[in-house]
Amino acid sequence: MDGKILDPDGARDHLASWKGRIDRMAQDTEAMSQRLRELRVTASDPNGLSQVSVDSTGALVDLRLTDRIAQVPPDEVARAIMTTLGQARNTLADRSQQIIADTVGTESPAARAIASSVDTHLRRDLAPAPKSPRGGASATSNDDGYDVSSDLWR
């Protein structure tokens, strides 16, 4: 508003316009929410060992292993699964960002906060975990041999 006092008709028009913007924002937010809830991503590793599917939260909902895993050491299979899971989550983050931009846009502080939260929750670093000299345990393992960098420990 520019500081002017509105006449009753002007005030009604202003409120109607404001309500229209709020209604559109609510519809756009509901559309975004629905599309994000329905999102699911499937990814395969380049060596053809595994295929993973994640739901809209990034949770693993399906894992398929091929017969090729019998020809590969177990730690390589595990690495392929975890890397493919990370790729699926990154793809999910990309698609989520696109849905947010398409439905609520990227201009409002609320839209930017939603996009940032989704990205922080889903995006994964795909660099392989370093091996410790103790025979394959992660460098982030505690003394009991548990990988404390696992999602279960976060």
Rank of each mutant, 00 (worst) to 15 (best):
G58Y: 04
Q51N: 06
Q51D: 05
T103Y: 07
M82C: 02
M32A: 08
M32S: 01
D7L: 10
I99W: 05
V54A: 01
R40A: 13
L63K: 07
N90Y: 08
V118I: 12
D9A: 08
I5S: 11
S50A: 15
E107V: 02
G136T: 03
G135F: 10
H121Y: 05
R134C: 15
N90T: 12
Q34K: 10
S96P: 03
R21A: 13
L36P: 04
R40H: 12
Q97W: 05
N47S: 13
P133Y: 14
A11G: 02
A93L: 10
R40N: 11
T120I: 13
A26G: 06
V104K: 00
D13H: 09
R21M: 15
L152I: 09
T120P: 05
V54I: 09
R12L: 15
M82R: 01
D23H: 10
D143S: 12
P128Y: 03
D151V: 13
D28S: 15
L92V: 07
P8Q: 12
G105S: 07
E30R: 09
G145F: 07
V41N: 04
A78K: 05
P74W: 01
R40P: 01
D62F: 07
R40V: 05
A110D: 04
L39A: 13
R95C: 02
D75L: 01
S138K: 04
G58A: 04
A137K: 06
A16Q: 14
V118A: 11
A70C: 07
N47R: 03
R95A: 02
D67S: 12
P46F: 00
A26I: 13
S53H: 09
P74H: 04
N142V: 09
A115N: 12
E30A: 14
T120D: 14
Q87E: 15
D45M: 00
T57G: 08
L15Q: 10
H121E: 14
K131A: 15
L36T: 06
S33R: 02
G135Q: 10
Y146V: 03
Q87Y: 01
T42M: 10
A43C: 12
A26L: 14
A139I: 13
Q27R: 13
I100L: 04
G48N: 13
D67V: 02
Q98Y: 01
R112E: 03
D13K: 07
P109K: 02
A31V: 03
D94I: 03
S50P: 02
A127I: 09
T91F: 05
R35Q: 15
D13C: 04
Y146C: 08
V52P: 02
A93N: 09
S116I: 02
L122Q: 03
V72G: 02
S53W: 06
L65T: 03
A101E: 06
G136S: 10
A26R: 14
S108G: 10
L122C: 09
D2H: 09
D125S: 14
V52L: 08
L152T: 11
D62G: 11
G105C: 02
A93W: 06
S149H: 07
A111M: 06
Q51W: 03
R112N: 07
L126F: 11
T84S: 08
H121W: 12
E76G: 12
H14W: 14
L6C: 08
R12G: 11
S17K: 04
G20Y: 10
A113L: 01
R154L: 15
R40F: 05
S141L: 01
T29F: 07
A111I: 01
N47L: 09
D151W: 12
D102G: 08
Q71W: 00
L85M: 12
M25K: 01
N47K: 06
G58N: 04
S56W: 10
